[in-house]
């Protein structure tokens, strides 16, 4: 089984090198980094550590980057695509837990959850927003999920071929769930650790962004 690890990255030169190195140390040879129009050296740093870097000439968002990466991985014969964050919040050792059920033919997609076993040190407000989001989306799409916005997932080739992302920015997380529901893709939640550090909190999104994401999600439904 060919496993590709796909990392959407935007201005992550400080962390990406370490992340790629750790993945390689865990034996993941195919690491694909999508440098999404970063203003820093994200792509170059990733290449130095032996990752394949693809470059978006301008920033198009995490959803757009994932779609580019999925296309690339499928073309290059990946059987399983693992999506992974560039900001060192995920643990490479845990990938095997997500990949296993797919190899066993148990399910088509494994979604990481930081709340299934409460394996996160997320601050209170972030927790609230993430829990609320998961509740809302589970209702909307009739899924059974505790964490809807987790960047760590394992996607089988069959699922990757079925999922067609159209949302460029952060709304893609809900779009994936929508398609899992509508296209009857089998899924399984796996507990994963998500580390919140000063870096990730200052660098990443703010909780308020949730409102913008929700607004864009609803707007997109309106114009489709």
């Amino acid at each position: 089984m060919n496993i590709s690890v796909l990392i959407p990255a935007f201005n992550e030169e400080k962390k990406i090198g370490e992340v790629v190195r750790k993945l390689k140390a865990q034996g993941y040879g195919d690491v694909v980094v999508i440098d999404d129009g970063s203003e820093d050296k994200t792509g170059i740093v990733a290449e130095k550590e032996g990752a394949k870097a693809l470059y978006h000439v301008i920033n198009r968002g995490q959803g757009a980057a994932l779609k580019t990466g999925i296309k690339y991985c499928l073309r290059n014969g990946a059987d399983i695509i693992v999506t992974f964050d560039a900001d060192d919040q995920h643990s490479p050792e845990e990938i095997s837990k997500l990949v296993e059920p797919i190899i066993n033919g148990e399910t088509e997609i494994c979604i990481g959850s930081r709340f299934l076993k409460n394996t996160t040190n997320a601050p209170f407000v972030r927790r609230l927003f993430l829990r609320g989001g998961a509740l809302l989306l589970s209702r909307m799409y009739k899924l059974n999920l505790t964490d809807s916005h987790n960047g760590l997932r394992a996607i089988s080739k069959s699922a990757a071929e079925k999922i067609n992302l159209t949302a460029d920015r952060m709304e893609h997380a809900s779009e994936i769930l929508e398609q899992i529901s509508k296209k009857n893709i089998s899924y399984k939640e796996i507990p994963v650790t998500i580390r919140y550090t000063e870096y990730s909190l200052n660098h990443g999104q703010k909780s308020w962004d949730a409102f913008r994401i929700l607004y864009r999600m609803l707007f997109r439904r309106l114009i489709r």
Binding site: I34, Y55, H56, I58, R60, A64, K71
Partner: peptide, 23 residues
Amino acid sequence: IYVKQEKTEQEITELVRELALRK
């Protein structure tokens, strides 16, 4: 205008993606 803008955005993304995959 919003709808048109959304369409334009998608086209830009598609272009950026093609460039990334071609290089």
